[in-house]
């Protein structure tokens, strides 16, 4: 464990909690893509299949449970909470995310570390996390609605990616056996897509700021 990875994990966790709290506090999920949140839930479930078979550390186990729990809570809130679900942009959140699931699974069948059930699902979850932001990006381009996508959420998401890249650089130089190519390359693709999301976030935020200029 190094400080970059720990910070990355903390920022990732905070970004999810910020989103969950925002949805719960405002009882609204307008502007949030349920499909992206469903993909994140699938990422965590398929990545942590070893939750009950491999014990790495208390921190590792607790964080896995918290990631699965908090993302599941967001999906539940957006789909079943009587008040929140009414504000879901169902007609705008139309990205066919099943294609992403299928494509990532096929890729994992070809590109993985070992051809075992657990390893293929692990690689699948790494690829899926990289593209999971797409439905949210498309929804943001269509709606320009950043009401629930707070600046903090975007900041923590960016910090998570930045610190994880620092973590890989650190591990590359510090550990003789660097076998994280799948995580690393997929993580770079993910960070590029996040940068695109941040760009559209900034445009939407700027436009909204202009719209609300004092008359």
């Amino acid at each position: 464990m190094n400080i970059f990875r720990f910070a990355g994990d903390m920022f990732h966790l905070i970004s999810i909690l910020v989103l969950l709290l925002k949805i719960y506090a405002t009882k609204s999920c307008s502007g949030i893509s349920l499909k992206t949140q469903e993909l994140y839930a699938l990422v965590f479930v398929t990545r942590y299949l070893d939750l009950f078979t491999d014990f790495i550390s208390v921190y590792n186990t607790v964080m896995k449970l918290v990631f699965i729990g908090s993302t599941a809570a967001i999906v539940w809130c957006m789909q079943w909470h009587p008040v929140v679900k009414r504000s879901y942009d169902r007609e705008l959140d139309t990205f066919r995310h099943y294609f992403l699931v299928g494509a990532c699974f096929v890729l994992a069948l070809f590109l993985h570390e070992n051809f075992t059930f657990q390893e293929i699902f692990w690689a699948f979850s790494i690829y899926l996390e990289a593209v999971a932001i797409l439905p949210q990006l498309v929804l943001l381009q269509r709606s320009g609605n950043v009401d629930n996508l707070t600046g903090q959420y975007v900041f923590f998401l960016g910090a998570y990616r930045a610190f994880y890249i620092l973590n890989w650089i650190y591990r590359y130089f510090m550990e003789q056996r660097f076998s994280r190519w799948i995580s690393c390359i997929s993580g770079l693709v993910q960070t590029a897509l996040y940068a695109d999301f941040f760009y559209y976030y900034f445009l939407s935020w700027k436009n909204n700021a202009k719209l609300h200029l004092p008359a």
Binding site: D50, D54, F55, I56, S57, N60, N167, S179
Partner: peptide
Amino acid sequence: SPKGSSHDEL
């Protein structure tokens, strides 16, 4: 002892 899973990252 914890299995040396190469996937110790979250």
